[in-house]
Design a protein around this nucleic acid. Sequence first.
DNA 1: AACGAAATGTTATTTCATTACTCTATCGGA
DNA 2: TCCGATAGAGTAATGAAATAACATTTCGTT
Lengths: 140, 140
Amino acid sequence: MAARHDLTRNQTLVLDRLTRADAPVSAYGLLDQLREEGLRAPLQVYRALDKLVELGLAHRLESLNAFVACAHAHEHRADEGHATGTTAFAICETCGRVDEFHDHAVEEGLAAWAGAAGFTPRLTTIELRGRCKECQAKAA
Amino acid sequence: MAARHDLTRNQTLVLDRLTRADAPVSAYGLLDQLREEGLRAPLQVYRALDKLVELGLAHRLESLNAFVACAHAHEHRADEGHATGTTAFAICETCGRVDEFHDHAVEEGLAAWAGAAGFTPRLTTIELRGRCKECQAKAA
DNA sequence: AACGAAATGTTATTTCATTACTCTATCGGA
DNA sequence: TCCGATAGAGTAATGAAATAACATTTCGTT
């Protein structure tokens, strides 16, 4: 199973940029940053992103059409299965920062609803957009 | 406060199409359907959609970049404030149908997390993509 | 060396969304 | 009645996000 050390060049470049960023970055934003490294086409970035998301090293934020590095990437290892459960995101619309979290009650609630409805989830998106604690304080 | 009967022509056209559709429709999909009614530009559709979403008569599905009519639109009245709480969506990737639901446990869970983190949500997106009961049965 | 799988690179195209500008109708004051 | 604010409408152009199609390269395995 692929671990961080056997990412390809493009995948590494993309992940590095995501990791350094302190806010979500769009595929085209990444491309712009990586032109100096020789990348030219959107597809090069999208392919790397697909792989990173598949490996659980990055997440796609559907409500922004942008990507972030997984906050728990350090937990990933070659010898373990990855990312437990559903990940939720709190996105600050003021400073851009994203907080990644898991909430048992939320997961249970959704699982219970799905069970009752006979719905089999494949992929779950939970995104809160609003204002983080710090920005809230500053705005007051 | 605006109620259904004072929607404008464009808003009515768009809402009608959304209501008749049995799956989410993109803005451009709506535009194609409405060319015969005289609409020509994306903006005409996007403006109508913005208003309908603002009124709670339609929802945007972030993970599909598409729109659906609100399943509870009949509950909307001129004299009442609208749509309580957070709406979640279960989207069948096989047949396209969307099931709109509210779950108290999920809302509570998110509210509790937000409270603890000091995060103030403005807009919450919850979308499950997977397979509905019927499609599950057929596929078996 | 030969093979196959995965990743790459490039061009073109499609799909989704917004900016900028103009025009018109309506409605509530002054 | 006139004024001006607001909201909706129409058009053109552009920007941003994502994919299709096709040719080539890299690299571990047999």
